[in-house]
Nucleic acid binder design. Sequence first.
DNA 1: TCAATATATCGATAATGCTCGATGCATGCC
DNA 2: GGCATGCATCGAGCATTATCGATATATTGA
Lengths: 137, 137
Amino acid sequence: MAKGGAEGGAKGMARGVPKSVPKSMADELDSGWHCSPSLVEAPLGVQDACDMARVLAALADPVRLRLLSIVASRSEVCSCDLEGPLGRSQPTVSHHTKVLADAGLLIGERRGRWTWWRLAPDRLAELRRLLGARPPD
Amino acid sequence: MAKGGAEGGAKGMARGVPKSVPKSMADELDSGWHCSPSLVEAPLGVQDACDMARVLAALADPVRLRLLSIVASRSEVCSCDLEGPLGRSQPTVSHHTKVLADAGLLIGERRGRWTWWRLAPDRLAELRRLLGARPPD
DNA sequence: TCAATATATCGATAATGCTCGATGCATGCC
DNA sequence: GGCATGCATCGAGCATTATCGATATATTGA
């Protein structure tokens, strides 16, 4: 009985996506997450809790929080403009953008040699709702 | 240069608290967290990001999310009533309640042999604000 | 075609975290 | 006092993750 025993598959289904775009930018979780009840409304089921925990885990890192806030402040940011402010190496920054993209929080678009990142606004709002925010928010 | 290099001390200062109450129930983070700007307002500083990540990390676990939702649904729950629904051993449940209490999300009160847990409502609202919810929320 | 650039991936390492059995500690009851 | 109970802590095992150097891939420009 290990942690998170009931995790559905949400990988390896990037279809209709240009080959140049990394998988991490394409595969959404698509797990009915946006229909789950709020945390304070009713006891969470195991599946809902796992889905929610996955997004929270993507946010539970200081580097990724700062990365997200930088993207939010400029509406669109190139990967190469993140290494400096974050104080991390290029592979590490790439790793963090991938984690955020896999969680559906960040959307990447390849333009030439550069990858431009922007927020997926619905995702944060949905998370706030799951944390007990009122519907209209 | 490890992760979270700039973490202020927020432990070992449980004063004026009955000896029978575990430290985890008493020490608040008390790090000006409630004054930080929202994630989407401006780039987060390292300290703010670390504080926020700590609370998010406390939530980024399926067992703890379900624990929190159980407490929220009943307004007050005894530790002994959590092992069953969570499917975890007593030490594990105790570990998770401690993590949530250290993050300021849960408040525990010892009554006789039992410990009763309830939500710290302000904390979730504050987290929602940091995630971009509008002030009134 | 070739060099330069931007990014993704690989492999390794160190740190962190979840879990549980064993144990310690405090409380209540007899 | 003696025993049972509820919870916290300890220690170990195992999995996950953050990080970076090295390398691979893709795009641009000459």
